[in-house]
């Protein structure tokens, strides 16, 4: 593939949206009330829309006879490049919100940079994405505050979720080969430039939510290079079920 780095770069961004949309899709109909159910489905839909735009672009530049669905459904697990954070399970609502908040904060900063990319397609997807992701971030950070500063029980649950998920935040800033090359070319974003800002901003919201900021010494990584948690296989089993069971059909 001529544009292999660009192709991989697109997937590094898009796979996060796909897997998070998939996780949120599991919740549809099971939320704590109708309003949050609808809001989480909205976020899932936005992420899915972004995923499709990225994959359509990736399919085009692959130079092969690929479709968005081939990319979404027909890779092996090791080829998915999402970070470990987004594949973490919906253990309880605190985890759903925590995962969303930690991801949205990163995602928005990424989109804000990506909109200036000289690659017009990526810039356009990012520009459209900013509106959506700003809303996601407002939703998730409002809920972090509500749960953190709500009741004793909700504070404990929200803290538990943040403590569990913090472990996966460092990976957001791990740069793969493709990311390094594209950042150098000026087409991709050098994510290391906003790592500090990310932790500052996230910490500030956690403090406002009367939560403590974890002080981890160790972090997990691997997802961006295709080495996922044990959860991923089950996500794949659902995601790919139809395409694997009934290959080469139109739906």
């Amino acid at each position: 593939m001529k544009n292999l780095n660009l192709y991989n770069y697109i997937l590094t961004i898009a796979d996060n949206s796909l897997i998070l949309a998939q996780r949120l899709g599991e919740l549809c109909g099971h939320g704590p009330n109708l309003e949050t159910d609808i809001a989480l489905t909205n976020i899932s839909l936005d992420l899915l829309g972004q995923t499709r735009s990225y994959y359509q672009y990736a399919a085009k530049i692959s130079g092969e006879d690929k479709t968005e669905d081939d990319i979404a459904f027909l890779r092996i697990e090791r080829e998915y490049k999402n970070c470990l954070l987004v594949e973490q399970p919906n253990t309880h609502f605190g985890h759903v919100i925590g995962r969303q908040f930690l991801f949205d904060s990163y995602h928005l900063m990424l989109m804000e940079k990506l909109q200036d990319s000289p690659d017009e397609t990526l810039a356009a997807i990012a520009k459209k994405g900013i509106k959506e992701v700003s809303y996601h971030k407002r939703f998730s950070s409002d809920w972090v505050k509500r749960l953190g500063d709500g009741t004793e029980e909700s504070n404990a649950k929200m803290q538990e979720a943040i403590d569990d998920l913090w472990h996966y935040t460092d990976e957001l800033f791990f740069m793969t080969e493709a990311e390094k090359v594209l950042a150098e070319d000026g087409i991709g974003v050098d994510i290391s430039t906003f790592k500090k800002k990310y932790y500052e901003e996230v910490s500030e919201i956690l403090k406002e939510a009367t939560l403590s900021v974890p002080e981890n010494k160790y972090f997990a990584k691997g997802g961006k290079e295709g080495v996922h948690t044990e959860y991923m296989g089950y996500i794949m089993a659902d995601l790919q079920y139809m395409q694997r069971t009934y290959p080469n059909m139109t739906w």
Binding site: P32, N33, H92, F93, R146, G150, T151
Partner: peptide, 12 residues
């Protein structure tokens, strides 16, 4: 399972 969430929202 949503009760603690709704309670938190109210308390907040």
């Amino acid at each position: 399972n949503g009760e603690w969430v709704r309670d938190a929202a109210m308390a907040y």
